[in-house]
């Protein structure tokens, strides 16, 4: 289901990433102030944007889950948060490396952009422990959705508040793109943004395919064992995905692990 068209998507992502890297290093000029160090910009900023968008998407999927009670939306939200956390770690690492090269320090606690992003990451780091703390799958999914919606709403609010801040060192990239960035910088930046978004979508679909296949296998195992109560999922933070004969149905089958 999610594996459909995954191969062309993966190939497109690979091509887009390769093109981005080639253009970033061999076509886009060096920044007048940052010099070659500015090349981190093409990695760090699109990653941050995609990460935050991923968190917002998780909140939207959680809304759909609460409205429909369809466990597939819970799984979509879970995978989006999981993947965005991975991307978020890359944002923090690449940002720290850039800060060391540009500012001379790995981290600056007085910088609102950095601290606010760390806060968002720490907030989402509690998502998995929250899920794991609740044993009942139904209640777990419901509480996790409420968390994803609340945290998803916090992300844009947090972004706007940080933008309103007057004391900052961190470059205001989004404002600069349309106003100050020369043509080549803009082209590579937008291409990089598309590449990172494609990478996120590809990995999201990849993980969804894996989770779905795992749930289908469990359903098949129970069917062949002839015992409906057998192989119930052990306690897990992973959502319980409902899989029926046609791929999606009512029988609760865990995609745990």
């Amino acid at each position: 289901m999610y594996g459909k068209r995954l191969r062309p998507l993966a190939l497109t992502t690979f091509a887009a990433l390769t093109l981005t890297l080639v253009l970033a290093f061999f076509w886009a000029p060096n920044d007048a102030n940052q010099g070659f160090l500015q090349k981190i910009f093409y990695l760090h900023v699109p990653l941050a944007i995609v990460t935050l968008c991923g968190f917002v998407y998780a909140g939207l999927a959680a809304i759909a889950h609460l409205r429909t009670r369809d466990s597939r939306w819970d799984m979509r939200s879970y995978v989006a948060i999981h993947l965005s956390l991975v991307f978020g770690v890359a944002v923090l690492v690449s940002g720290s490396i850039w800060a060391k090269g540009s500012w001379g320090v790995w981290w600056d606690w007085s910088e609102p952009t950095l601290v606010s992003f760390l806060l968002v990451m720490l907030l989402y780091a509690t998502y998995q422990p929250l899920r794991f703390a609740i044993e009942d799958p139904e209640r777990q999914a419901r509480y996790a959705s409420v968390f994803a919606i609340t945290a998803g709403a916090f992300v844009p609010i947090n972004f706007v508040i940080v933008r309103l801040s007057t004391a900052y060192l961190h470059p205001r990239v989004l404002g600069d793109i349309s106003a100050n960035l020369p043509g080549r910088f803009q082209v590579v930046f937008y291409l990089s943004l598309v590449s990172m978004a494609l990478l996120w979508i590809t990995l999201w679909r990849y993980e969804m395919t894996s989770k779905h296949a795992s749930a289908q296998l469990r359903a098949l195992k129970r069917l062949l064992a002839g015992d409906e109560d057998e192989a119930l999922p052990r306690r897990s933070a992973v959502p319980t995905l409902s899989v029926g004969a046609g791929g999606a149905g009512s029988s609760g089958v865990g995609a745990a692990r």
């Binding site: 070659f36 690492v93 490396i97 090269g101």
Partner: peptide, 19 residues
């Protein structure tokens, strides 16, 4: 002003390799 190339390369390489 502009950070010298030989200083910037290790940081850029580290960021991309880490990613």
């Amino acid at each position: 002003l502009e950070i010298p190339l030989h200083q910037a390369v290790p940081y850029v390489a580290a960021a991309y390799i880490a990613f």
